[in-house]
Design a protein around this nucleic acid. Structure first.
Lengths: 257, 257
DNA sequence: CGGGCAATTGAAATACATCAAGGCGTGTGG
DNA sequence: CCACACGCCTTGATGTATTTCAATTGCCCG
């Protein structure tokens, strides 16, 4: 065991000078598992991983390319270190549902720590870089440090809770509510990773992504988004999202936190 | 360790003379974990659990009553031994989304093995009986028999796969497709538990349950169900569901298995 | 017998999809 | 550098799936 883990994953390094590994109630997976840069010893990231994981390789995927396919088997566990990706399922006729967006510090699939098949397709939205761990190394590391099982479990439980909310959204909320929720949720995720500047975040999503995530068509997304902008709740321009009226947006989203 | 585990959970005992613990590729949770009746030694149910679990208590919940609430904390793990239940989330204004139906042999929440809060509300549809294990006992049993971790994991992974499919259904399929899928899926689950008699199963769901599971209104469910019956694809009467044309129904459901 | 839940049916309203056209930015090849 | 194609966004007109509303029936249970 060494401290060579430092500089492993630098969450939010797209934005620069972000708070890394600040003690937060709900951080990204990398932070939770102590996989991120040990820039501030004494906080949650001082944990040490075995040499085997340090030796893991780096992967680069250009925008709009698949990272992995639904039925693909792999011996590796991927963690995104920069860029955005989308995890989705698709029907034969092309109808697609995005199940989650993957931001820096997230596992491409938490399930792949245990299972060789992830069951979803994952596509790069922007250019993406990943760190690739061999699953066996990862598992061995877990056996060495069983307290991490609990943390991995927490991450997974959170993902499940989000999946439940997604079903509730898709089954029972109107288009404007769904879109408001997606925006609020993405803004929060970005903020947790230090990727936010006030109420503004980098926003690489096309309206097609929003449509596929909310179960709508991109035409309808355009109309709803136009409404929200005309009501001065949000602004999207130059691939930048700003929440102008957080209170109203959260009310529409039914956000209670 | 003793064999006192026998007669613990008898899946499908509503239907009588069912195949119990037959070797099947995808069984209920009870069977997978060796928690069901050891009627056929040599098959998958000869596994033995610690005395502590045998001493677990029985719970009875009448139809239409809550089994547990979303934010409730509990020290117990529940497994349904008879009756049907529904696991759901509800908005303030009453809109409700059922996330899954729980049949005999299912855990009320697999997450409750590790976490005190399950995050969903669960309600009895029919009269329900549960076996109640203390979580600490359950965990202790897992530590004794670590191979069960893998099985528990499998069960959980299956649940996640179903959650993903639910999102795809709610976001991207039409009403008739959703309803067809629900019916096919319930019929398969019932068959796996030996609760089917040919293409007929006990079917205690009200149209309101189908509506809440598919993200529709019960009025619309009535119309679609009427169509399916007029087309001789299914028949529902006397709380009994019969699939008259499995091929057509599966085609509509986009079932590929 | 009465009351309430469940199911059915039809008419009207609405939320969202589909279709179609035009503009705007971006990369690309001549 | 320009012409051009292409993807992305917008907007309006039209179509449709699903909801809402309302009235009626049957049924179970007290």
């Amino acid at each position: 065991l060494t401290l060579a883990v430092a500089a492993r994953v630098r969450t939010g390094d797209e934005v620069g000078n972000s708070v890394i590994c600040a003690a937060s109630s709900a951080m990204c997976s990398a932070q939770r598992l102590g996989l991120c840069e040990g820039a501030k010893p004494g906080l949650s990231c001082e944990e040490q991983w075995p040499e085997a994981l340090v030796a893991s390789s780096i992967l680069t995927i250009p925008a709009r390319r698949p990272i992995c396919h639904r039925k693909e088997w792999t011996d590796h566990v991927l963690m995104v270190t920069s860029g955005w990706a989308a995890s989705s399922l698709t029907l034969q006729d092309g109808r697609r549902q995005i199940l989650s967006f993957i931001l820096p510090g997230d596992f491409v699939s938490i399930a792949s720590v245990f299972e060789p098949m992830i069951g979803r397709s994952v596509d790069a939205i922007t250019d993406v870089t990943c760190r690739r761990f061999r699953r066996e190394d990862f598992k061995a590391a877990l056996i060495d440090r069983p307290e991490l099982y609990g943390k991995l479990f927490e991450i997974w439980a959170d993902e499940n809770a989000q999946a439940d909310q997604l079903a509730l959204d898709l089954g029972r909320r109107r288009a404007d509510e769904r879109i408001a929720r997606l925006i609020v949720s993405l803004a929060e995720q970005a903020a947790k990773r230090g990727m936010a500047q006030g109420e503004t975040i980098d926003f690489p999503l096309r309206q097609r992504h929003i449509a596929d995530a909310t179960g709508l068509t991109s035409v309808h997304v355009s109309k709803v988004l136009g409404d929200l902008q005309r009501k001065d709740m949000i602004d999207i321009s130059d691939r930048l999202l700003t929440i102008l009226n957080p209170t109203a947006l959260r009310r529409l989203a039914g956000w209670h936190e």
